[in-house]
């Protein structure tokens, strides 16, 4: 089959060229290696930030305390009004009695103290635990709930939550920006290194054109060469990110600073990361060499 024969020749030529221009190939590979290491770190960081932002968001709750004298009808009306707020995902109701039982179960002291009150003179309050859909708007939602009649106090860990949410959002943006910028820089580096290997083979390309090789045939070995460089360039970053993350994860027991910030479990996360790094490496090598060879195909 002709296409397979041509592809076989392309791959053979690409390997020959990598070996023949060994020092230049090594330069390209080191370039790719260094940038891919940083890309891998950025990927791991951004996935983790995303992960624990989500975790924290999932735990984020607005606690709504009703007035002490709220009747069952009041509870129903508050419930209806909370349901109508757009940003509310779901809520849980705990009556005074439930709260009392829970507290009694938790501690012997509470058990004794609380036993002394009858249900109707209990100082405890009916509560709602509300979860929101969009964590960014949690403050607004809390205010809306506060304005409902018979609601006494609303709590959601105000300042700290707001700050954390905005911090995470900007960390995420910055890591994305870094990854994209690095990929672009690598593409340019590869374009330039492959241009060097190609200009050494200008003559060969012009002869290929003269004897009737199609542009596709001329390009393929260079593109395969770029892919090989990308492949070799991603080996070290994959090893470093895999073992580095494993060590990091084990060292901190899966948590960073506090139990609030949970790291992603290494498996299958490191495999996904490795695959992404590999694909970026190969694509970058391909794109770089394809655009480097373009200029020589106009004779």
């Amino acid at each position: 089959m002709k296409p397979f024969r041509m592809l076989g020749r392309s791959i053979r030529d690409a390997f020959k060229s990598v070996i023949r221009n060994f020092s230049l190939s090594l330069a390209s590979i080191s370039c790719i290696t260094i940038t891919l290491i940083i890309v891998a770190i950025a990927i791991i960081a951004s996935f983790n930030v995303q992960n624990f932002t989500k975790e924290i968001e999932r735990d984020m709750t607005i606690v709504v305390f009703l007035e002490n004298d709220a009747t069952e009808e009041d509870v129903e009306s508050v419930k209806g009004k909370i349901e109508k707020i757009n940003n509310v995902d779901n809520y849980k109701f705990q009556s005074k009695v439930d709260v009392k039982k829970q507290m009694q179960a938790e501690s012997e002291v509470f058990n004794r103290v609380l036993d002394e009150w009858e249900d109707d003179e209990s100082p405890l309050k009916d509560t709602f635990q509300v979860k929101v859909k969009e964590i960014e708007n949690i403050g607004k939602t809390a205010k809306q709930i506060q304005s409902i009649e018979k609601v006494s106090v609303v709590r959601y860990g105000e300042g700290m939550v707001d700050k954390m949410v905005t911090a995470f959002a900007s960390i995420e943006k910055v890591t994305y920006g870094i990854v994209i910028a690095l990929v672009i820089v690598t593409v340019f580096l590869i374009i330039n290194t492959i241009k060097l290997t190609i200009s050494a083979r200008k003559r060969e390309i012009s002869i290929m054109r003269l004897v009737g090789a199609s542009n596709f045939t001329i390009k393929t070995p260079f593109i395969v060469e770029g892919m090989i460089l990308g492949l070799f360039g991603s080996i070290v970053p994959i090893i470093i990110s895999t073992y580095g993350y494993l060590a990091f994860y084990n060292h901190f027991d899966g948590y960073l600073f506090s139990e609030l910030i949970q790291l992603i479990k290494p498996e299958p996360f490191i495999y996904t990361t490795s695959l992404i790094v590999l694909v970026i490496g190969i694509l970058v090598g391909m794109i770089g060499s394809a655009s480097a060879v373009k200029k020589y195909l106009k004779v």
Binding site: R5, M6, M208, G212, A213, T217, I218
Partner: peptide, 10 residues
Amino acid sequence: AFALEVIGAK
């Protein structure tokens, strides 16, 4: 042979 290889001859 180069002239024939690049056009995919056997």
